[in-house]
Each structure stands twice: as structure tokens, then as C-alpha cells.
């Protein structure tokens, strides 16, 4: 990688979005409440970051019902996984270069 900065993703520079993507890349899918528990954030703040990730088509959303409760699940898309991987590689490369 000649210039790792070019591979850093603007959307993922935000730490909450990066954390959400980490969870979704490590798991096949994740529901809203479990995501909230693990991130320790409010509904509103998670929802806004989710929206940003969805707009970029990094994640997909599926809504269903468990009994009467709505159950919203999130999945990382292929595009999301690729971008995440590139971003992670760039981060590692930057650390390597700056440590020299």
C-alpha cells in the first residue's frame, strides 16, 4: 500500500460506526437491542449512525416481529465487508509506517 490514507474510509473514521461495523462483520446478523447493550449508547445515537451506514449501503436492515415485538436485524453487506477490510488494512499499515 503506497498511501494508506487513501484507503481509509471517511464513513468509518467515526468510532461508533467503526464499532457497529466490527460487530456486524464478526456476526452474521445482530439485533438492535443486543447492539445497544454492547455499545452502551442511546437509541437515538445508534439509530443515526445506523442510518448513515445504511445510506452508504454498508449494512442491510430487515424488520420482522417476534410475537408482538418488532425485531430489527442488521447485516453487513458485501460492500460493507470489503470497505471494512480495506479500512482495517489501512489502519494497520499506518501504524506500521509510523512506528518505523
Amino acid at each position: 500500500m503506497k498511501n494508506p490514507f487513501e484507503h481509509l474510509d471517511k464513513v468509518l473514521e467515526h468510532s461508533v460506526r467503526l464499532q457497529i461495523m466490527s460487530v456486524l462483520v464478526a456476526n452474521e446478523s445482530y439485533d438492535f437491542n443486543s447492539l445497544k447493550e454492547i455499545l452502551g449508547l442511546t437509541d437515538g445515537s445508534i439509530a443515526s449512525h445506523i442510518k448513515a451506514l445504511e445510506k452508504e449501503k454498508y449494512i442491510s436492515i430487515s424488520k420482522s416481529f417476534v410475537g408482538k415485538k418488532p425485531n430489527t436485524r442488521y447485516k453487513a453487506t458485501e460492500r460493507g465487508r470489503t470497505v471494512f477490510k480495506k479500512h482495517l488494512d489501512a489502519l494497520e499499515e499506518l501504524i506500521k509506517q509510523q512506528k518505523k
Binding site: 473514521e13 466490527s22 460487530v23 464478526a26 455499545l39 482495517l88 494497520e92 499506518l94 512506528k99
Partner: peptide, 23 residues
């Protein structure tokens, strides 16, 4: 611009989130 510590923090948080969400 972010410092190298910030990148390390990012990587640590990725690892932490992946572990905690799966385990």
C-alpha cells in the same frame, strides 16, 4: 489529522467489539 495512538485505539476497539459481540 489523527495520531498513531488513535489508529491503535481504533484497532483495539474493533477487536474488543468483535470479541464482546460474539462471545
Amino acid at each position: 489529522m489523527k495520531e498513531v495512538q488513535d489508529y491503535e485505539k481504533d484497532i483495539a476497539s474493533i477487536r474488543n467489539m468483535m470479541e464482546r459481540s460474539v462471545k
